[in-house]
Design a binder for these strands. Structure first.
Length: 572
RNA sequence: CGGGGUAUAGCGCAGUUUGGUAGCGCACUGGUUUUGGGAACCAGCUGUCGGGGGUUCGAAUCCCUCUACCCCGACCA
């Protein structure tokens, strides 16, 4: 491709909407442009990268026997109702109506779609295992899209689903996937950390996330440097070392706490530890169901554990009006004592609080010496505590650390949820009807690209790994006499199948250098007056500072060798 | 959804306090000179000042309203 003909709107200045490096660089290099919040168009350069990443994903999937499908983007409401997810899923599910007022969903994930497809054709164990996948758009109306394609509302995902006659077979595919994923990320030039995670509303058990360490990561990963325990904070456990104080129950009293609402302010007011407080949180689901959650004042509720405790139903903190209606008091004064007509659940920590402090369900008042059973009821106890840095390791009891990470891939053992709910069956060897057991496996394609850029850039721009670079070579003729040898090299390289850019624009050298660095093509060939006089050109890797002078005749072979070497490192 | 902010040329911004009919840099078009790290000069083009309503002789500027986008939070009780 000749740059003069390429739609490549590079930007010299940083667009004001972008905050993180990958977003800034993807905009500046002309890879993407924004259409609306969380919605992006890929321009030719970006699309080339996207296609390369997809290609690698497809190769790795095909290698382990997965087969690619292309289902529709729209899915009917009925499908989602079969598994209960039409009501279980929160507002992130994009719901639309057709002209007949029929409800449809722009798929946020495709367990139902594929299981529906599979159950129609599945009859015998001889058809199993079956591994299916697609690389296509997903729609999630995110609460807050941000960071460019890192968290968009419409994005490309490689999602695979597997169906098995038994759990042993599922485990085998799960292992294959785990290896395929490592290989995929390696080939894209990413170092990933495998992390135990929670499968949330997907409804599974075993799962593993592929995380990339990054400060802009939206996930917190808990790790134990002592014994190697690693888990997503959403799933991480910690040693529960609650002890009940040997203290007699004191008389329940009401205290005036004018305008003192937060745990922090209350701690200062009462001159006691935050552990003395029974924090009372009111949650509400999409269908208005409410639940009151109690937890010790110094702890936080793990949203995923809460979802699991509520049988997979998603709850969010209730709106202020809801809190006011339920507690008859402004926000900040909620407590479990005297609450009626609502389910109350509590974290295990609450059992051990003696003579605790909590809101009085009246403006500017708190209750002291509150005790479980004597003063309030709890319908059910769960472990709802969010594990944090500083808690003790569930395995070795040493102190836990944490780091931020970007989730680029996720594999799950799903179990029977979807095949049971959707009545997918096959006949086993003994002629008995059975549900297949399922696995599901996702890779965020856009996010993978953003993460690669996040980890591979310098002050001048992107440094693409050879495997996913939009072009492998960029030729920069800097003077009049350089154009002819440049074009010759350009043709030679294309003959070898090497994707090459020729910057044939009538621009000053500095401009060409800046653009080449910005878009991050791995190999740069510079043809200038001085070196040309010696019959040589300058060869440089984007990721390295130094360059070498190479005879014109040897260029194409040298370049071919360089690409081979780079690709071998990524593929090994 | 709560809080904060922004909206003026393709991009980045000034102008809004104090109302007087829109500007700077980059980009773009033509020309001359340049040519190894985003050139210089000359001459140009480019705007429903986010939308609607109001006040006023007159609104980018003041008032009301709507919308879009960004940031923080939404695990505060």
């Amino acid at each position: 491709m000749k740059v003069s003909k390429l739609f490549l709107p590079t930007l010299k200045e940083t667009p004001k909407d972008a905050v993180i490096k990958s977003h800034i660089l993807m905009l500046r290099s002309g890879m993407i442009r924004k259409s609306a919040s969380g919605l992006y168009s890929y321009l030719p350069l970006g699309f080339k990268v996207l296609k390369k990443v997809i290609q690698i994903a497809e190769e790795e999937m095909d290698k382990i026997g997965a087969q690619e499908f292309l289902p529709p983007i729209l899915t009917s409401r009925e499908l989602w109702e079969e598994t209960g997810r039409y009501s279980l899923m929160g507002p992130q599910m994009w719901r639309i109506k057709d002209r007949h007022q029929q409800d449809f969903v722009l798929g946020p994930t495709h367990e139902e779609s594929f299981t529906d497809l599979v159950r129609r054709e599945l009859s015998s164990y001889k058809q199993l295992p079956l591994i299916v996948y697609q690389v296509y758009k997903k729609f999630r109306d995110e609460i807050r899209p941000r960071y460019g394609v890192m968290r968009g509302r419409e994005f490309t995902m490689k999602d695979a689903y597997s169906y098995h006659a038994d759990e042993t077979d599922l485990s085998k595919t799960y292992e294959d996937m785990r290896k395929a994923y490592r290989q995929f990320f390696k080939r894209c030039g990413l170092d990933t950390v495998p992390v135990q995670a929670d499968s949330g509303s997907m409804g599974g058990k075993t799962s593993e996330e592929f995380m990339v360490r990054s400060h802009i990561g939206e996930d917190t990963i808990i790790e134990c440097p002592a014994c190697g325990y690693v888990a997503n904070a959403e799933r991480a456990e910690c040693t529960l070392d609650y002890e009940k104080k040997e203290e007699a129950f004191k008389t329940l009293e009401t205290k005036d706490t004018p305008n003192i609402k937060t745990i922090e302010a209350l701690t200062a007011f009462f001159q006691c530890s935050p552990k003395q407080f029974i924090k009372t949180l009111i949650y509400e689901a999409l269908d208005q169901e409410k639940v009151v959650v109690l937890i010790r004042g110094d702890l936080e509720v793990n949203q995923v554990k809460l979802t699991n405790a509520m049988m997979g139903k998603e709850f969010q903190l209730a709106k202020d009006e809801t809190v006011v209606t339920l507690t008859q008091a402004p926000v900040g004064f909620a407590g479990p004592v005297g609450l009626k007509n609502v389910k109350i659940i509590a974290d295990e920590s609450v059992r051990y609080i003696v003579n605790g402090i909590t809101g009085a369900n009246q403006k500017d008042q708190h209750l002291v010496n509150v005790n479980f059973e004597r003063d309030f009821r709890v319908d059910e106890f769960f472990n709802l505590r969010l594990t944090k840095k500083g808690d003790s390791c569930p395995q070795c009891k040493k102190e836990l650390h944490s780091f931020e990470g970007i989730e680029v891939g996720h594999i799950f053992k799903l179990g029977y949820k979807y095949t049971q709910d959707m009545k997918a069956v096959f006949l086993d060897a003994s002629g008995k009807e059975q549900h297949p057991i399922m696995g599901c496996y996702g890779i965020g394609i856009d996010r993978t690209i953003a993460t690669v850029i996040e980890q591979n850039h310098d002050e001048d721009g992107i440094i693409f790994p050879m495997s996913i670079a939009p072009y492998q070579v960029s030729i920069l003729p800097l003077s009049e006499e350089a154009f002819e040898p440049a074009e010759k090299l350009y043709n030679e390289l294309w003959k070898k199948g090497i994707e090459t850019l020729l910057d044939d624009r009538d621009l000053r050298p500095g401009f060409k250098f800046k653009d080449a660095d910005l878009i991050g093509i791995p190999i740069r060939v510079t043809l200038g007056k001085k070196t040309l006089a010696e019959g040589k050109a300058e060869l440089k890797l984007r990721k390295e500072k130094t360059n070498t002078l190479v005879l014109l005749d040897e260029l194409s072979e040298k370049i071919e060798q360089m690409i081979k070497t780079e690709m071998e490192i990524l593929n090994s």
